Amino acid sequence: LKGDLNMRIEMGESLLYSWLRHIKGCQLVQTNWKKPSLSWEMKNEDTINTLLSSYIDLLRKEYNKRLYKRKVSAPQLLLQSEIDVLGASFDGDTQNLYAIDVNFDEFESSYNDIDKAIIKVAQKILTTVMFLYGHFDKKTGDIIFVSPRIDESVISPLDKFISDIQNLLYKFDLTYNIRIIANEDFYDKIMQPVIDASKSANDSKDLFMRSIQIYSLFSNHKKSHTENNLDSTSNPKAKDFNNINGYNEMKIGLLVRSTLTRMLANHEISKEEIELMQTAAYSKKTFHLLHPLLRKTSLSNGEKVMRYWSTEVEAYGEKYFICSEWYETPSNNDRPYFMKWLALRQ
């Protein structure tokens, strides 16, 4: 039983590793991240010590819960704690950290009892905040609790508790985005986007992604198994582009690249539209792009083409490069154009 539980935990961490790498675009991801020793300097130590006391007081006064059985210190807590999956993304001067707690045992989830859930979540938030602020000197980031199944009776009170904790953190000028992803959201925001991304991923060290690719390789020869098939092209839920929760988790470049690669390979785009996608006028009007969406690789004479991803995609026997110039800023937002195009292809 212990081995089976460890396997589920490792599979859950592997899935979230894939999610951070391929959906959130993190350049750095590590599972089971721990502080290596006491020799690591703690930044913002005075603030963290004050926060620790305020945090424990909040749990005692507002929730009548004792967070720890004995008196604790910040360094002691951090040496005993870890982050299940830690990711960092870098986009110019913008950096974002993702700290994820994974609970992958859907039948014996420690989140399913509200009293246990509050203690567990409170402890994880506290140590994660101290990690991010004390050792990364970051006041912002995403702290996420992930489980495939949490009893619905727990979700609402747990959301309220997280809101109370977040309000306390705001008083210390800490603006972490703390949230739960479970149940339908787990499938829509994590599982299905990772399955979609596996069509174009090439990462031999990504165990979860490789397992999906191997499964799909054989399942394609057994269409009788389609009701259990992880192939997103046969899953009707993958066609529901009005349900964009999972797509909203993806940066626009990753979304375009993974989606178009799959659709082109599976001939879900007509030859006529592929011709139009090679024109500047259609690409500007439909996708808000300054360059043609597609370019035949044969035009490049084997050289790298600026403003296009270097990986080739094939459709109807012809190979293409996909434009890489996608943005989602207030002054230049391409996402609504691409999502509208997707929605029209249900």
Rank of each mutant, 00 (worst) to 15 (best):
E184Y: 03
N220V: 04
K205I: 11
K304T: 15
T297R: 10
D188C: 10
D203M: 05
K284L: 06
T297F: 11
M191L: 15
G253H: 06
L264T: 02
R210H: 07
V313P: 00
T261H: 15
A197F: 07
H288M: 06
Y316T: 04
N245E: 09
Y187D: 12
S234Q: 09
A197Y: 07
A197L: 08
D231I: 01
N245T: 05
L217A: 14
Y308M: 09
T311P: 02
L217P: 00
K304Y: 10
L264S: 05
K222M: 12
I269A: 05
K222S: 13
T297H: 06
R295Y: 13
W309T: 14
S324D: 10
M250T: 11
G302A: 04
K319H: 08
W309F: 15
H288S: 13
K251A: 08
M250V: 03
N202S: 15
L294D: 03
T233M: 13
S300A: 14
L254Y: 11
Y187P: 06
I244A: 12
F208Q: 00
S298P: 02
M209H: 00
V256L: 10
G317P: 09
T297V: 14
D206V: 04
G253W: 03
M306V: 14
S283I: 09
C323K: 00
T286P: 04
V256F: 07
M263S: 04
E268W: 03
F218H: 13
P292Y: 01
N245D: 11
W326Y: 07
N248W: 10
F186W: 10
L264H: 00
L260I: 13
H291F: 12
D185S: 12
F218M: 10
L255M: 15
I244W: 05
L276W: 12
F241Y: 15
R210D: 02
K205E: 13
Y187H: 11
S232W: 04
E273G: 11
K304A: 13
L207K: 12
A280H: 03
S234E: 09
K189P: 04
P292T: 06
V305A: 15
H291A: 08
E272P: 02
D188E: 15
V194N: 03
S324L: 06
K237G: 00
Y308D: 06
L254N: 08
